[in-house]
Computed example of a mutant assay.
Amino acid sequence: MRRGIKLLMTVATTAVVAVAFRASVQQQHTTTGAAAVVSTEQPRHTSGRASSPSSRGASRTPVRTPTSPPTSPTGSRTTAPKDHSATPQPPATSVVVAGGVVDTQYGPVQVGITVRGGRITKAHTLQHPSGDGQTDQINGYAVPQLNQETMTAQSAQIDTVSGATFTSEGYRQSLQSALDAAHKAGAR
């Protein structure tokens, strides 16, 4: 008689654990990131005896397990699937490119840019007209303005700097070729 009750309790416990495991697996497939809710069947006791699995009521009681994942009948732990939508993306890589050299009436102009995350993060001239005092003076104020215009416009559609028309036009052409090269290099 005791063996029968012990066997019945073992079967009932195994059934409860199996139902809990199945419910936790089903629940894990429907929730992402939330605490898992596991439904289990609780055996009813009548007059001091355990009822058989077939005569039990199907009362479902949610059991929250925020600190430890549910266990399977074999004792192995189960975990909820990871929510990959919030996985941080790798940082954007910087692409550094040089535009083509554009010959102007006063000398060559070449622009270099750094693109990161689809934005121009740095613009600078690699070459600009120089050699005489007036050209150096003009480009001394024109080149920083052109670099700043590039950062503001985020394109080659920049204004001409007064007094530096040829340098401005050469800068625009070289900048556009640098933007094209950055795009080909995969800058996003």
Score class of each variant (00 low, 15 high):
S47D: 11
R49F: 02
R77Q: 03
S39E: 09
G107Y: 06
S52T: 08
Q26C: 03
T79A: 12
A50D: 00
T93C: 03
V16C: 07
L126V: 13
V11G: 00
P70A: 01
S55T: 04
R49Q: 01
P91D: 14
P90D: 12
G57K: 00
H84N: 07
T78E: 13
H29R: 07
T160L: 11
A12I: 07
Q28T: 08
V97S: 06
R44L: 10
V63R: 00
T67R: 12
K82T: 13
T13D: 02
D103H: 12
L146A: 11
V96T: 15
G107L: 10
D159A: 15
T14P: 00
G133M: 13
P70G: 01
P90Q: 14
A34I: 08
Y106W: 06
T87E: 09
Q127K: 13
S51P: 02
N139F: 15
V143K: 06
V143M: 10
V38T: 15
D83Y: 04
A185Y: 03
G163R: 15
M151F: 06
Y171E: 01
T104F: 08
V25I: 15
A20K: 03
A156Q: 14
T31N: 12
I120T: 07
A35L: 03
A18Y: 02
R60F: 00
E41C: 02
F21L: 04
R56D: 05
G33W: 11
I158W: 11
E169H: 10
P43I: 05
P43L: 05
T135A: 13
S94W: 09
T135D: 10
T10C: 00
T74H: 12
S54F: 12
V63N: 02
Q27E: 10
F21N: 13
G133E: 11
V95Q: 02
T125I: 00
Q110E: 12
V101P: 03
R3A: 07
A178F: 06
E41D: 02
R49K: 04
H45S: 07
P73Q: 04
A182Y: 14
E149T: 05
A181N: 06
Q154F: 07
A34M: 14
Y171H: 04
A185Q: 09
M151A: 06
P53K: 04
Q89W: 01
L8V: 01
V143Q: 11
K82M: 04
A156L: 07
H124N: 09
T74P: 00
